[in-house]
Design a protein around this nucleic acid. Structure first.
Length: 201
DNA sequence: CATGGGATTGACT
DNA sequence: GTCAATCCCATGC
C-alpha cells in the first residue's frame, strides 16, 4: 500500500486533516513511520506561526496545501508540518510522533538511541530519525522527497486534548493521538484526552 | 541594526 | 524536577 495522499486531502479544515493524518505513513529516503500524534495550527489562533500574518517565515504556510512546512525550533530542531486549507489561509498540521515501520536500523544510527520508542516519539526526534531537514521546506508531500501515504489499516481510535509546548491558546484541544500507542511524545493522565468521533468532525 | 523568544530535546540534579 | 544548547526571524529602535 503506497498510495500518496492527494493534495485535496490537505485542502480541508485543518482539524479534519490533523485527525485523519493519524494512522497514515510518512516516508523519506527508504524509511517510514506510522503517524501516531499530530497537532493543528491555524492563523486565527495565537499559537500558530501564521498568526503573525504573511512573512518570509510563514510564506510556505500561506501557500498551497499538500506541501511540507519545516522550520527550526528552539534553534536546534527541525519540525515537520503539512500545509492545509487553501492558499491565503495559514494552516498546518504538526507531525509530532511516529511508530517506526521501515528503516529502523538507519533511524537508530541517526538517533543513537536504543529503545524503539525513543526513535520518533517527538517532533524533533522524528525529523532527525528520518533525515528531514530545513532544506525540504516547501517541497511536496504528494510527490516527495517526503511523502505521506494513506492509512494502511484505516484510521485508528483517536484521542484529543490540549497541544504541547505552547504558551498561547493553551485550551484548544487540537492535539490528536492514536489511542493506546506507546510511540506518542508524551503519555497523558487518564481523562485528559477525550475520544474523537471520526464522522463528527 | 539589536534584541529576545520559541510548535524541543537531552543531560544533569 | 531543572536547565543549556542554538538559530531563525518578528519586532522595535
Amino acid at each position: 500500500m503506497h498510495a500518496a495522499l492527494p493534495a485535496e486531502f490537505y485542502g480541508r479544515p485543518v482539524l479534519e486533516v490533523a485527525r485523519d493524518l493519524v494512522g497514515c505513513v510518512v516516508r523519506h529516503s527508504g524509511m517510514s513511520g506510522l503517524i501516531v500524534e499530530t497537532e493543528a495550527y491555524h492563523d486565527t489562533e495565537p499559537a500558530s506561526h501564521a498568526f503573525a500574518g504573511l512573512t518570509p517565515r510563514t510564506e510556505t504556510l500561506f501557500g498551497p496545501p499538500g506541501v511540507a512546512y519545516i522550520y527550526r525550533s528552539y534553534g536546534v530542531h527541525a519540525l515537520l508540518n503539512a500545509v492545509c486549507e487553501d492558499e491565503r489561509t495559514g494552516a498546518g498540521v504538526l507531525i509530532r510522533a511516529l511508530e517506526p515501520l521501515e528503516g529502523e536500523g538507519e533511524m537508530r544510527a541517526r538517533r543513537r538511541r536504543d529503545r524503539l520508542e525513543d526513535l520518533c516519539s517527538g517532533p524533533g526526534k522524528l525529523t532527525q530519525a528520518l533525515g528531514v531537514d530545513l532544506e525540504l521546506n516547501g517541497t511536496s508531500l504528494v510527490d516527495g522527497p517526503v511523502r505521506i501515504d494513506a492509512a494502511p489499516a484505516g484510521t485508528p481510535e483517536i484521542l484529543t486534548g490540549p497541544r504541547i509546548g505552547i504558551t498561547r491558546a493553551v485550551d484548544l484541544p487540537w492535539r490528536f493521538c492514536a489511542a493506546g500507542s506507546r510511540f506518542v511524545s508524551r503519555p497523558w493522565p487518564p481523562g485528559l484526552l477525550a475520544p474523537v468521533s471520526r464522522t463528527a468532525g
